[in-house]
Computed example of a mutant assay.
Amino acid sequence: MKVLDSVRVLEIGGLGPGPFCAMHLADLGADVISVVREAKGKTPTGPLLNRGKRSVFADLKTEEGRQLVLALVAEADALIEGMRPGVMERLGLGPDECLRVNPRLVYGRMTGWGQSGPLAPRAGHDTNYAAVSGALWGCGPVDARPVSPFAVLGDIGGGALYLMTGLLSGIVQTRATGRGTVVDAAIVDGSAHMLNLMLSARQNGVVADTRGQSVHDSAPFYDTYVCADGEHITIGALEPQFYSLLLDTLGLVAHPDFGGAQWDKAAWPVRRARLAALFLTQPRAHWQALLEPTDACFGAVLSPLEAAQHPHMRARGVYSEHQGVLQAAPAPRFDGAAYAPADACLPGAHTQAIMQGLEQAGAQAVWRQRRAP
């Protein structure tokens, strides 16, 4: 048994955050049926995002495809769609039509710009939404261009995870009231909402309104450094006890450059230069061996392939090779255990079985109706 075993989700196949959200729900036990259109050639993502799902082919521009979706909607707790605003309505599969078939449905809409506003009808991608929301602004030092990790900041952080929050919240409400709802999950909304911790720090002066003036992009004790082998490490010793431990472990307690207060910003450039020079004297593995066993708030910058081999990640079973693909295990954990990754299906792999199931359900409904007094 998994925590979402009682949830059935219908996914209108798309790209990026919608399929990721559906995979996440499937990871936690939801029965996810993905409706996809037969396509030739490569797609931007592989079949990993199909893990744990069932998949059926349907052309939504045909009446047959529309009726298939509505038949699946009738049995679903939630629907995920990632079309531009108005597309599902033009297909006859908008919220009004679907909620008419299933008044308890939670209809999840995943877009970059949202269902309303001047940019709502415009195209875009992860980096555009993160930029306009304000989330991309602080992703990089002042002397470099802002860069965010592929799809993480917008599509996943501000998009898929907020859509999942909305869907599960809607399901809780529906099970209490019997009424469905429509979730407008816009990446710009979620990405902006994630900034509230930063905006709270701004009130205390920890985050400035100018790049290169905040703790995360100017403090020597909260920075990324290059090592002798060209690899990188991170330091995050914000609290005074961790800062003192960092200096002690590096043999810098008595160094004149570090004699003043930790938060003396005038001394930060000199201290950063000193730390940068020190970390350049040894390879990353040296600093890992020295600092990882301490509370100096240290982390080596690892690629996903390297992270899969890190002792901590291996001990927790975070990464694995499943179906020949490196992937991360479902998260979070429940009662101390992580769920194992399910197999990923090929697009349309369950078309025949799902169609037969719908036909049988329809025949049974007719039989029950005829048997009724």
Score class of each variant (00 low, 15 high):
L105E: 03
V106Q: 02
V106A: 02
Y107N: 13
R109N: 06
T111G: 03
G112E: 05
G112P: 00
G112D: 04
Q115I: 08
S116V: 15
G117D: 05
G117R: 01
P118Q: 11
P121S: 10
P121M: 03
A123H: 01
D126Q: 04
T127D: 12
Y129Q: 03
V132C: 09
V132L: 11
S133L: 02
A135W: 00
C139E: 10
G140T: 01
D143H: 05
A144L: 14
S148Y: 01
S148Q: 14
F150C: 06
A151Q: 15
V152Y: 14
L153T: 05
G154Q: 14
G154M: 12
G157V: 00
G159Q: 12
G159M: 10
A160M: 02
A160R: 07
L163F: 05
L163V: 05
M164S: 13
G166F: 05
L167K: 06
L167M: 08
S169Y: 09
S169I: 02
V172G: 05
Q173L: 03
A176G: 07
G178E: 03
G178S: 01
G178Q: 00
R179N: 11
V182Q: 04
V182Y: 14
D189I: 00
M194Y: 10
L195I: 12
N196T: 04
M198H: 13
S200Y: 12
S200W: 13
A201T: 14
R202F: 15
V206T: 08
A208G: 05
D209A: 07
D209V: 00
R211P: 02
G212C: 07
Q213R: 14
S214F: 01
S214K: 02
H216P: 02
H216M: 12
S218H: 10
F221E: 12
D223N: 14
D223Q: 13
T224C: 08
Y225L: 07
Y225P: 09
V226K: 12
C227D: 01
